[in-house]
Design a protein around this nucleic acid. Structure first.
Lengths: 343, 343
DNA sequence: TTTAGCACTCTCGATCGCTGAGTGCCATCC
DNA sequence: GGATGGCACTCAGCGATCGAGAGTGCTAAA
């Protein structure tokens, strides 16, 4: 009973089960794959694989189904990378390059993944914490209120209102010229800096502007640092939820738990950042600690402009998914997205 | 056979069916509602209601179920407004007021509606076309590229990149001072104007800046007008998709068509703007022309800062929904949202 | 070590009959 | 004329039964 053939049998089972969605028996296995042995032999191998925990049978007299461990082995050692077709690549490229702004790019990336994989797509917004500051804008909107707009070098734009601490004094000081000066100082201080360096740089600005403006400058500085530091203000784009319904019968527990998990964006974000890895990361079934996703697998990849990863995107589907295809699609979209992002 | 009692019977049927989710027969009707007549009498009324098309029976020897027309009659003439409870109102108020920016407000509004109605919530972003321009920001990001940030008076922020038309000439002209002047001119021209007036106002600016800057100014002006004019760039927030799965069995055709309809944001937007009305608008089942939503009802309301509606929000659920409750919730959230929005 | 044969198990689908809910109609009553 | 009680009729749903087929595990032979 060769070790090699046993793995081959596992691969065959996974591939067959993924396409047919039905437990696969020893007979069809010999028919559809050139294994060169009889069903009886396969049965022996299958008994061994079951013993090792890679496959299981839903009930006596049904075929075998891969377990989470089986998929894991498949992904780690058996799956061959299946490159996308040229038309697919071209489609990704053109579709992404038609985007008008960052939001649009991310939405399009999501749609692409959803369509390519036939599953749910998840795209995380470029992390504010991993971004640099490109530009800071300060706009007066009322006597005691400013609107502060932060533009990161990944193209993300965040706005916050800033209540001015000052009294009549503070307010009167805020004419156009003063504001312009403040803006210029902040932007000069932030130029080329990493986010981590901002608090120090801004503190220096607050020092430098003199006592008259210190209050206002301090408020703005705090607000910006606060905005960029908040990990929980991260956002996510979802796409292809309808695809879930199509593979509805796949989820024993029904769609509810999955949909609920997808709505918990905070948790989802945790999952993504946790899985964030250099290459492509795969979590299978119970490897996800999340309750709602124990019947699902998650495939993610980092993306980011030039080398530095700024966020994560991926695809979520039933454990019985086309891993090679999904991995290829996620990887490809992440690459092209990285290329398109403003650097 | 009094007309009055027949309507009372219809109301009873709708209310019972909504709560029990099961066809309701003449016997339970007399038991649960004080109609003061015998089942036999109810049966006569029911026969008449069926004749008129307000109710139907799924199969012989099953109870009756309201038709779309029945729900319509119920909503138009029989439903009593059921005001929210004080705690509910307070919850809405505090939850909305905790939002940090526009995106956050809209997401929170969506969650509220989803939670209150137990259905899917839809919140349209404040329409750019119906907004005024609060501030325009121009940021240089490269030698031949500007980032133009548009802030509307509803707090919405849009950014676009602007490729500069100029040659070496045009580029050299773009120092900080020139840019500041351009920004000041545009903002002065836009102050207090409605969107419709912008093209003219901006054209004047382009005239005024002189030939050196006309190219750049023109490009910026075009971009802004284009950005604000694009109806298709509207956006939508969805919430509570998981609620669908819970009422899964309700949809004969399954969830797919509904989820697909929800993903077609363009179509959904069309529906919302089409339904936009002064009070609360209700579309029941087949009244929605959209294929995916023939088994669903949509309840919407406009919202907007001070009087002027700027967008629409609503709730989508099975035709068998709690109309009075849904209408009350949607209405309430729309009102509070209008109050919280920056004006 | 592989293979053929065989007995065994269990799911799935079809069939059948029953029960109960609900209706429609008719004769009767007020 | 409208309301009511009685009654026969229909039909979905449920459970039980049964047979077919798929698939396995085991054993003995190649």
């Amino acid at each position: 009973m060769s070790e090699e053939r046993r793995l081959e049998v596992l691969r065959a089972i996974v591939e067959d089960y993924v396409t047919t969605r039905e437990p696969v028996g020893s007979r069809v296995l010999t028919e559809r794959h050139r294994l060169g042995v009889s069903p009886a032999t396969i049965r022996n191998d299958m008994a061994a694989l079951e013993e090792e925990g890679y496959i299981a049978q839903p009930h006596t007299s049904a075929g075998r189904v891969p377990t989470d461990a089986g998929y894991r082995l498949f992904v780690d050692r058996l799956a061959e990378v299946r490159p996308l077709t040229i038309p697919q690549k071209r489609a990704i490229e053109t579709f992404l390059s038609e985007a008008v702004d960052l939001d649009d790019v991310l939405v399009r990336a999501g749609r692409l993944i959803a369509q390519l994989t036939g599953q749910v797509a998840v795209v995380q917004y470029p992390s504010l914490r991993r971004s640099g500051l490109r530009h800071l804008e300060i706009v007066p909107v009322a006597r005691d209120r400013l609107l502060v707009v932060v533009i990161t070098d990944t193209g993300r734009v965040e706005q916050r209102f800033c209540e001015l601490p000052g009294t009549a004094d503070g307010v009167s000081a805020l004419d156009e010229v003063t504001l312009a000066e403040l803006r210029a100082r902040f932007n000069a201080a932030a130029a080329g800096k990493r986010l981590a360096e901002l608090p120090v740089a801004f503190a220096a600005v607050v020092e430098a502007v003199g006592p008259d403006l210190a209050g206002v400058a301090g408020a703005v500085a705090d607000l910006v640092v606060d905005t960029l530091g908040q990990e929980n203000e991260e956002r996510i784009v979802l796409a292809g939820t309808a695809n879930l319904a199509r593979s509805e019968s796949t989820f024993e527990q029904g769609l509810s738990p999955v949909l609920e998990a997808l709505e918990e964006q905070v948790i989802l974000l945790g999952l993504l950042t946790e899985m964030s890895s250099d290459g492509v990361g795969v979590r299978i079934g119970h490897e996800n600690r999340l309750d709602g996703l124990t019947e699902a697998s998650v495939v993610v990849s980092d993306y980011g402009s030039g080398g530095d990863p700024v966020a994560t995107l991926g695809s979520i589907g039933p454990t019985r998914m086309d891993y090679p295809g999904t991995i290829a699609s996620v990887h490809a979209v992440a690459r092209y997205l990285s290329r398109v992002l403003p650097s």
